Amino acid sequence: MPFDKNAQRIAAIDWLRGIVMILMALDHASWFFNSQRIFADSVLLYEPGAQFAADQFFTRWITHICAPTFIFLAGTSIAISNFQRQQQGMSTAAIDRELLLRGAFIALLDIALFSFIGGKPVLQVLYAIGISMMLLAHLQRLGAGTVFWLAILIIAGGELLLMAWWQPGGETPFWLAITFAPVFGEQYSVLYPALPWLGLMMLGWVFGERLIAQQSAAWKPERLLMTCGWFALTLFVVIRGLDGYGNLFMHLEGNTLVHWLHVSKYPPSLAYTLLELGLMAILLSLLMRLESWKKTIHPNGPVLVFGQTALFFYLAHFAVLTALKPLFERGSLEQTYGITLLVLIILYPICRAYRNLKWRHPQSWLRFL
């Protein structure tokens, strides 16, 4: 699928982002309403020898792709948006200022809004996204090649720093918590330390630059994604099988599929990152092929609408889940899937109306959402 430099959006990216939003809604509906929900994706949360029901495990596992995909695609969208703004005559300084402002706004949503609701400081995915955007505003000046290798260094070498400075379950300095190591404490929690996720956004930005440049017809984006996806999955199998570096203390305890897929998300291990990026790349490649085959794309398809209003969806789905909480007791997994469907039905017209409003007022504060 060639990149159209005059197009405002790439449907495949919006489709994938929409799929991620749906899976995220399932995970958070499970958090609100699933009495048997599994949350053991870190050495800080997992008790060795624990047994997981397959349906509960895979309901949690399929949502692992959400954060890496959303953050990677955020980087891709930044590259494309910057290019389009340059084409419109916007200065580099103005483009950087927009990115810094949006990053600060998104990070503050976690620091202010969600921390206020949670009753203590809680730094989650919006913190990681916002800080990464602000850093990327400066890092992108280094050029695609340098940013790529810095991203690889962060993703592949982060565990070396943790092994030197971090002992799971021990005291974690605040500076390390906000950069590399998670904390689940009574005074504050950091689920998404910024720097591992910055590496993913940097990779996404490099891919966005590659989409714009289209330097080699022999390596179309779909083919590049498919090749990189299978390469990442192969590396995952090697690293998980060796069961040493790259697993962040989440070692294999058996040879079942559940054991192989039970990897560390908090913080993201190399095994986790390779697995999720590999699956994401293959899926995005297939969606790009689908986009090139389709003669027309329905502009109001639910997946597309959710993908085009992702940050608004993120905020709104929490409001809907909270509103539904008095109506349902915590219960079965089947109920969780039903509530997820209800949430999506409620959110579709709201997200569609918001999208139309945002597009009618492109320079309003709504651009930050």
Rank of each mutant, 00 (worst) to 15 (best):
L162M: 15
M163V: 14
M163E: 15
M163K: 15
W166H: 13
P168W: 02
G169M: 00
G169T: 07
E171H: 13
E171K: 10
F174C: 01
L176A: 07
I178C: 04
I178P: 00
T179D: 03
T179H: 01
F180H: 08
F180R: 04
P182S: 04
V183P: 04
V183S: 01
V183R: 05
G185S: 10
Q187T: 11
Q187H: 11
V190A: 04
L191G: 10
L191Y: 15
Y192L: 07
A194E: 00
L198P: 02
G199P: 00
M201Q: 04
M201V: 00
M202F: 04
L203Q: 02
G204M: 02
G204I: 04
W205E: 06
W205N: 01
W205S: 01
V206W: 05
F207S: 09
F207E: 02
G208C: 11
G208F: 15
L211D: 07
I212L: 15
A213C: 08
Q214C: 11
Q214M: 13
Q215L: 04
S216C: 01
A217G: 06
A217D: 12
K220F: 13
P221E: 10
P221C: 08
L224D: 11
M226S: 14
T227P: 01
T227Q: 13
C228A: 14
G229S: 08
G229E: 00
G229Y: 03
F231E: 02
F231G: 06
A232M: 11
L233R: 02
T234N: 05
T234W: 12
T234A: 14
T234I: 09
L235A: 09
V237C: 07
V238M: 12
V238Q: 04
I239T: 10
R240I: 07
L242R: 12
L242H: 10
L242T: 11
L242P: 05
D243E: 07
Y245M: 09
G246V: 06
L248Y: 15
F249Y: 15
L252F: 06
G254D: 05
N255F: 03
T256A: 08
T256G: 04
T256W: 01
L257A: 13
W260H: 09
H262L: 11
V263W: 05
V263L: 10
K265C: 06
K265Q: 14
K265H: 14
K265P: 01
Y266S: 06
